[in-house]
Amino acid sequence: MSEPFDEGFITRYLLGDLPEQEQIEIEDRAFTDARVMQDVLAVEADLIDEYVQGRLKDRERRQFETRFLASAERRQKVEFARALAQVARESVLTETIRRPSAAIAPATLWTALLATFRSTGPAFRLSLAAASLVLVVGLTWLTVHTLRVRSELAQAQSEQQDLEGRLADERARSQKLADQLQGEQQQRERDQELIRELERPREEPANDRSQSAILSFALLPGVSRSGGSATTLTIPQSTRLVRFQIGIQPGDDYKSFRVNVLSSVGRQIWAQDNLSARSGRGGPLVLLSVPARLLSAGEYELALKGVTDDGRTEDVGYYYFKVRKN
């Protein structure tokens, strides 16, 4: 296989700068060796680009114009090269703006930009410079504006989060107050119920006053319903109030206690919040007063729950008892 021609040699051929015999040599090879043909075409494309970008020396430019602008077919190639150069320039400028550290090395980019300026007319250069200035000013303004808007947006979001947090706190506080109010109302209703129960004996006949209106009853923890050992409470007819002394463990330190008294079928008979623990002879206990008339004969479950400082509710114990009526 013959050696490929040097690119400079092919360039001289294309510019008509070679003796006839060397021209024939290149043409013969190009017609019989596709690789040589491709080499000549590749050099031709580069030469056209060089001309379009104004990089040919005067003599070369004149030779080029004599040879390359002679036929319509070749002029089309030159026209195409002009369009390609323009689109490539725009592409590089776009890439420069979009990706300052693009794949092209900075030096290459710089030389490319310089070449772009060199290959254009004064009017275009002036327009390009003006456009660049407008672009730089615009980008600067856009960057500053974007940063300011982002900062304001972040501040607004922060304020919004702050407000939402405060609103949530206020809602929680309001709910807590409403719960407390409801609890206190319920407590007051129960107190009034208890007071009414306590006041009723005064209206009873004198012969019934001998019997106590209040019946105290101790409930111990751990007494299960299934164990069959549920405490039986016998409530006389004259009893108005049953006071439960609910025993708890010494470690059951809660802010307050809540009690639910349920019948054997699960119906709530009595419920009370905000009960406090106090010391008794057998240990700490919680006192609960229930109107006797609510406790008909049957089996009951008393659920005692402790309320922690942070408002959570924990099971303390379940107590079971039977009621008999005399």
């Binding site: 390609l84 689109v87 592409s91 090395a105």
Partner: peptide
């Protein structure tokens, strides 16, 4: 390929093509 291959001055063009 087409926009990079045919872009640049002589030295830069060679460098572009290598890349």
């Amino acid at each position: 390929l087409i926009l990079q291959y045919y872009h640049g001055e002589a030295a830069a063009k060679i460098e572009n093509r290598k890349k």
